[in-house]
Amino acid sequence: MKQLFALALTAMVFHPTAAAMAADAARGEQLYGSRCAGCHSVEVNRIGPKHRGVFDREAGTVPDYDYSDALRDSKVVWDEASLDAWLTKPQDFIPGQKMFFSLRNAEERADIIAYLQQVSE
């Protein structure tokens, strides 16, 4: 019983990596709705900055959003790799930022990034 539980836990924590799978923007949109939309919208600044056009944009440059100094000065440009690093652990990627929300599941990150790319086209 104990072993079964450990197994289930392992399955929950170590999801398959996204590398081999094609990212799914439609699933990303759904995930965005449940994981990101507490703080973000595509069209308007809320707790976090709006996301329309985020892909290929320099970090910390949406007008009228009150960024942390760390993010504003980061010189990061948002692409697949930088978004993946950010969503994995924002504080490790840009220390001093203020998002502190991370997404452990690589597949979910890839899907959400595909969606962010779609809303930036």
């Binding site: 449940s34 994981r35 939309a37 507490g38 703080c39 502190f100 929300f101 991370s102 997404l103």
Partner: peptide, 17 residues
């Protein structure tokens, strides 16, 4: 409902930080 669900997920998501 959308805001509450988003807030629940946000509070859960920041726990490790």
């Amino acid at each position: 409902a959308r805001l509450e669900k988003g807030a629940a997920n946000a509070y859960l998501g920041v726990i490790p930080s």
